[in-house]
Design a protein around this nucleic acid. Structure first.
Length: 878
RNA sequence: GGGUGGUUAGCUCAGUUGGUUAGAGCGUUACGUUGACAUCGUAAAGGUCGUUGGUUCGAGUCCAAUACCACCCACCA
């Protein structure tokens, strides 16, 4: 017996546990069908589940469960990411609570601490993922830092290095002064703000009282200036080219050079060049062979090359301005809108800094990654993301992969005493190479830098399947089927996976890439902790059940759009689950049990034929939409069928049968009910795995777990079977409307008549009198024999006239008004039809089918108009 | 500066190749008889589909321009 109330908390976790212990999520390697594989976008090991995850994983689980039911070999490869900076940050913060810094521990101890910490709390997100119902194969869970994946990282690194695609270079890089590491371009957030533009002047060397005026947003970097640039086309200033000017305060002479970088229209037309601290200036410096003077320490304080050693850039800026003012060289300070780069994790200002770093030659790797998308080997869904991808890939810059962190993959690089580089997969190999190279044994030191987190996640699609070993899983599941992820990591992750996979595997990592949007709050604002508008998915699940949240995600997911979170809507889908629960209880109470040899194509009652046709139709809709990755359409198809068709109509229509005397009809109806209920559970299962499983197991003894049940693909919809009941539904609806409009008491049992010359209708009336009477609250309904009398309220339904005799209760003036309204509506439509049909262009150019339709509508409306006019005439004088 | 997406009912959103009277959920109003369900049922109100032009027999849907919103990318002193 099912409980009276639907309480998801009572069974969701139990069901999941059972699935997992039974190994239900493992791929059926014996299947002779295709393979289907999704690799999960690995959540940060430090993470907790947020709504974005809930969306991402729900969509994947729907696809996974659907394909599993199609009988394929299905693998959802799960795992977590070591998330270099993010994790190091969290652990450092924890240590800081005890007043310990990572330097107190030293590298080795610190890394140990991180591993320990990961063991304690790294499982949180995986537990939460289970709560959501994600059917991933936990027996294959991987971690980007585990031994196998680390081996993959080292191997591909060595390959890239030996192919010349990884190199070391001293370059200007984005420097994060909090974590004291380089970061990639993508990890820099440009924020708009109003800053200051400082105008001051440098004296011209040897020309008393002459100056060159410059404008800058960063006066404190002037100690690193090695030139001032002026455009050769700048009529006012070009005479200064070739002269020297003096940097005040430190009194160092620098040349005034000609360079197109200096736009005569901007600032003062003269721009100070600080090659070591600005990406533009660096290029200028290269063109003119200017020296680089670094003025910053790694912690973003000024260094010994300045008069302000040890103080921060902001403090130094003020001191510089003060000093310039004292010298009488300040001209003015203006507000200036500008963008300032911040570290996405650290939140501190990013400084361009000259350092030794390692780079991946992304422009070379991008070529293949672009080609396979151009040629359709990998397809973005929605397609618009292709453009974003191409745009970025075609303008890609070398990827800085070295990080001066401790937590991460230490690069497989060893240096000889003379700095010679040995890149091998392990120390023994490197040593052997070195011994060969030097002809004797030399001590090697290993590069301390670790790799950008995204380097290892870039290998995720094949490293998790066993690469570099040749494994059955790699053979079976690579290339994977589809990647489902948010557009926010298209560059970070998708692009890198494409490049790494094409380089190493020569095959795309996934055949399709489905990109979804962000989850926002209910008014469309981005969720963030600082705005305090986040919604915790686990809390939502506790309150409404995982199925409700999942269905919400599916129903709201339309391609290319963000989703606004709405608790009311989640509650609505919980109500949907309740509705289904109660429908199942209804079946249970009426002993509607699945019948083993039931043949849905062999039922005789019209309602049963009808619901079976509708169920098959809904199944086809869901299937079609899932195949097209149209999540909301597929969810809505099944929702509409369950609530709007099965519960609202079918259940109501079969009550007279179930409570009646006809045992044959009863038996067939019960069997049909059970068949449809099973069908619902099957088709709804990918969306709502818990409630469907719970009902599946409680309604009957089953041979097969619902999640392994075969998805119906052989349906043929009997369209004729739909027609009769669809007609009855329309009649019922019209009568209900009429009753409400006439304010007839709900309890009043009425007689109704239908006037129609069509024989088929006469048969329908006889066949469905029971159903119509029961649902429209009538005493009887029959064909009208004889004349329409003035005490009958009339309305039209398709070709029929429907009549309700209301002896003595008809308010004729109200009735006239109602009929007039009906008439006005008809006239409006008729005007539309007439104008179209009288237009020769329409009649000649529109397809015949459309014209015919229009004519039919016109004829019908004219007939109905006549009927309404008759009715009006009948009561004209009453 | 470049690019992308959005603008449809009070709110949040669907609307697949242009073709009935533009749909749903929530909210609102009225009424609730019945032995699955008040986490419910029935009925109803509510929209000149951002604006302006164009293409077409026909435009929410295609094209152009424009306004506003959101996001992404970009080295502008």
């Amino acid at each position: 017996m099912l409980e009276k109330n639907y309480t998801p908390k009572d069974f969701e976790e139990k069901i999941y546990e059972k699935w997992e212990t039974n190994g239900d999520f493992k791929p059926d390697m014996s299947s002779d069908k295709d393979s289907f594989c999704v690799v999960i976008p690995p959540p940060n090991v430090t993470g907790v589940l947020h709504m974005g995850h809930a969306l991402d994983y729900t969509l994947q689980d729907i696809l996974i469960r659907y394909n599993r039911m199609l009988g394929k070999k299905v693998l959802w490869q799960v795992g977590t990411d070591h998330a270099g900076i993010a994790t190091q940050m969290v652990v450092e913060r924890n240590l800081a609570k005890d007043g310990i810094s990572r330097h107190d521990l030293g590298r080795e101890k610190f890394i140990e601490t991180v591993w320990k910490w990961r063991e304690q709390s790294g499982g949180t997100i995986c537990k939460q993922l289970r709560r959501l119902g994600a059917s991933c194969d936990w027996s294959r869970e991987r971690f980007t830092m585990d031994e196998g994946l680390s081996r993959a990282v080292r191997k591909i690194f060595v390959n890239l290095y030996k192919d010349g695609l990884i190199y070391k270079a001293k370059k200007l890089v984005n420097w994060d002064s909090k974590f004291m590491t380089a970061v990639s371009d993508l990890e820099v957030i440009q924020k708009e703000c109003v800053g200051k533009m400082y105008y001051y002047r440098y004296p011209i060397e040897g020309e008393e009282g002459k100056y060159i005026h410059i404008a800058t947003t960063r006066p404190e970097t002037m100690f690193g200036d090695t030139a001032v640039a002026v455009s050769k086309d700048n009529e006012k200033l070009k005479h200064l080219i070739g002269k020297n000017c003096i940097i005040p305060i430190i009194n160092r002479a620098i040349p005034i050079i000609a360079d197109e970088h200096a736009d005569p229209e901007k600032g003062t037309g003269a721009v100070k060049i600080t090659p070591a601290h600005d990406f533009n200036d660096f290029e200028v410096g290269k063109r003119h062979d200017l020296p680089l003077i670094n003025v910053l320490n790694p912690d973003a304080t000024l260094n010994e090359n300045t008069p302000y050693e040890g103080i921060t850039t902001l403090e130094a800026r003020q001191k510089t301005i003060d000093a310039l003012s004292e010298l009488g060289l300040m001209d003015k300070i203006e507000d200036h809108p500008m963008v300032i780069p911040y570290g996405d994790r650290s939140g501190v200002i990013i400084e361009p800094l000259m350092t030794d770093q390692w780079f991946v030659d992304a422009p070379v790797l991008a070529k293949e990654a672009i080609r396979v998308v151009e040629e359709g080997e990998m397809e973005f869904l929605p397609k618009t993301y292709e453009k974003t991808y191409f745009e970025w890939m075609r303008n890609i810059q070398p990827w800085c992969i070295s990080r001066q962190l401790w937590w991460g993959h230490q690069m497989p690089i060893w240096y000889g005493p003379d700095g010679h580089i040995f890149c091998e997969e392990n120390e023994e190999l490197a040593q052997a190479e070195a011994d060969k190279f030097y002809g004797k044994h030399e001590e090697l030191t290993r590069e301390t830098d670790v790799l950008d987190t995204w380097f290892s996640s870039g290998l995720w699609a094949f490293s998790t399947l066993g690469w570099p070993d040749k494994t059955e899983f790699l053979d079976t599941f690579y290339p994977t089927s589809v990647l489902v992820t948010g557009f926010d990591i298209i560059f970070f992750w998708v692009a890198r996976m494409m490049m790494m996979s094409m380089y190493m595997m020569k095959k795309v990592p996934f055949k399709k890439c489905y990109m979804h949007g962000l989850i926002r709050d209910e008014h469309g604002h981005k969720m963030s902790k600082s705005k305090n508008n986040t919604v915790d998915p686990i809390e939502t699940i506790e309150k409404y059940g995982a199925d409700a949240l999942r269905f919400f995600m599916a129903a709201m997911e339309t391609q290319g759009r963000d989703i606004n979170m709405s608790e009311a809507r989640v509650a609505g889908y919980r109500n949907f689950a309740t509705k289904l629960w109660n429908a199942a209880r209804f079946g249970e109470m009426n002993e509607a049990k699945p019948v083993a040899d039931f043949n849905p194509d062999n039922v005789s009652l019209a309602v049963n034929k009808w619901i079976i046709a509708k169920a098959k139709e809904a199944t086809l809709e869901v299937t079609k939409n899932l195949n097209a990755y149209r999540f909301s359409d597929s969810a809505n198809s099944i929702y509409q069928f369950v609530w709007g068709t099965f519960c609202d109509w079918y259940i109501e229509m079969i009550k007279p049968i179930l409570y009646g005397e006809d045992e044959t009809a009863k038996a067939e109806t019960k069997a049909t009910f059970a068949w449809v209920m099973d069908r619902i559970l099957v088709v709804l299962h990918p969306f709502m795995p818990y409630i469907t499983t719970q009902l599946w197991n409680n309604l009957a003894t089953r041979d097969v777990e619902l999640m392994h049940h075969t998805w119906p693909t052989e349906d043929v919809v009997d369209n004729q079977a739909k027609e009769a009941i669809d007609w009855a539904i329309e009649v019922i609806t019209v009568i209900r409307s009429l009753r409400a409009e006439m304010n007839l008491p709900a309890g009043a049992k009425l007689k109704a008549y239908i006037k129609d010359d069509n024989n088929k209708i006469a048969i329908y009336i006889k066949d469905f009198a029971n159903i119509i009477c029961s649902l429209a609250r009538l005493e009887t309904i029959e064909t009208l024999n004889g004349e329409i009398t003035p005490d009958m309220v009339q309305t039209v339904c398709q070709s029929s006239t429907i009549l309700l005799p209301l002896k003595g209760v008809v308010d004729f003036s109200a009735e006239r008004e109602r009929l007039q309204k009906e008439l006005a509506g008809l006239d409006k439509n008729l005007a539309g039809y007439a104008s179209k049909l009288s237009n020769p262009n329409f009649v000649e150019r529109a397809p015949i089918k459309v014209v015919e339709e229009e004519k039919k509508r016109q004829t019908e409306a004219l007939e109905n108009k006549a009927k309404v006019e008759e009715a009006l005439a009948r009561i004209a004088n009453l």
